[in-house]
């Protein structure tokens, strides 16, 4: 047995299949986990946003307008501090003017269009809005929480790493194993090919039972050719005039 073999093609195929299956499982799991973590973060943000908005509403209940809520700045600062994923918390009035902001330099400016859309209720990536409703049902303003996905990404990276090492380990064992087993399983067939080849090469020696009939048949043909050749050679060697050999 020498040269390349069909077994390498099969082994390559099976190895690819294993890699593909493991990769698929890893990716499917990863995507599911990502969705779960994002949903979980949304829940936490919902709790924080609702609580902060309620704080402002309690302030309005005291009888002041939103810009005059006592401790408004402290409320947004506290909301920002309650989750490490938050990078900014602000309150804007119904016209879009920023009243309280953890980025103090922005107080007094108008909301940029993206944030204005988020305040209006459009789902905006990275921002969570909670309306601040006054005592007669009018939305006086909106609380906006800006969140990053840093902690989610860190968690997903950790999960990806936690999946990668075992996967590589498993594949590191499985792929060589499957290649080995493939070649082992292929040996009888390769021997079969070899035996077939031997018969075709007329190498002599006994043919295995599987090829006995073919071997005999080919031997018959060769014998016929041998006989014909002998006869013709004999005819050549005859002196002229003689028809058959002595």
């Amino acid at each position: 047995m020498r040269g390349s073999s069909f077994a390498s093609r099969v082994a390559l195929l099976l190895a690819l299949l294993l890699v593909l299956a493991c990769a698929l499982v890893a990716v499917l799991n990863y995507l599911k986990f990502e969705r779960l973590l994002v949903a979980q973060q949304a829940r936490v943000l919902g709790i924080i946003a609702a609580d902060a908005a309620e704080g402002f509403e309690r302030g309005i209940n005291l009888g002041v307008r939103l810009p005059g809520v006592p401790g408004g700045q402290a409320l947004v600062e506290r909301a920002l501090a309650s989750d490490p994923d938050l990078h900014r918390a602000l309150v804007a009035d119904a016209r879009g003017r920023i009243l309280f902001d953890t980025e103090r330099g922005r107080i007094g400016e108008d909301l940029p269009p993206a944030l204005a859309a988020a305040a209006g209720g459009a789902a905006t990536a990275g921002w969570r809005a909670a309306p601040i409703v006054n005592g007669f049902g009018q939305t006086e303003g909106t609380l906006l929480l800006g969140h990053a996905r840093d902690s989610i990404r860190a968690r997903l990276d950790a999960i990806a790493l936690g999946m990668l090492r075992p996967t590589l380990l498993v594949l590191g064992v499985a792929v060589p194993l499957v290649v080995l087993l493939t070649f082992l399983a292929a040996r009888p067939v390769r021997r079969h090919f070899d035996a077939f080849g031997q018969v075709l090469a007329r190498g002599g020696g006994g043919a295995p039972p599987a090829f006995a009939a073919l071997d005999a048949s080919l031997a018959e043909t060769e014998a016929l050719l041998d006989g014909a050749e002998r006869d013709l050679e004999a005819l050549v060697a005859l002196p002229p005039g003689q028809e058959t050999p002595a």
Partner: peptide, 13 residues
């Protein structure tokens, strides 16, 4: 109770 200022704001609304 209703805060008078809130009621006033509502009236203004």
């Amino acid at each position: 109770v209703s805060r008078y200022t809130s009621v006033g704001a509502f009236t203004a609304f």
